[in-house]
Amino acid sequence: MLIMVNMQIETVLGNKLRIKILKILSKIRELNVTEIARRLGANHKTTMKHLKILENEGILQHKRFGRIRLYRFNENSVKAKAIQTLLETWENAENIR
């Protein structure tokens, strides 16, 4: 069952798959659920569960086109911006090393 109240940062970011989702969307910008699941190596149900948690926290948002749901970072969320900055900074630092 989904926890609908705001979660602590350690809970939200304390999951490998959620971090992976954030990394994917930070690079690709926008992606549908099936493709996110494929890149995660997870099934559709698990992927959806994590996407909903991230959306509930206001970090992600989605747009629906018929059966297709495209997920991306929430443009109006301060949390989303902070996570994107963290991921980009991390990536750049890794590249320099």
Binding site: R29, N32, L70
Partner: peptide, 14 residues
């Protein structure tokens, strides 16, 4: 408008 829009799952009309 949506660069990674999936290529499967719908018809041309959709």
């Amino acid at each position: 408008f949506h660069p990674n829009f999936p290529k499967r799952g719908f018809s041309a009309e959709e």
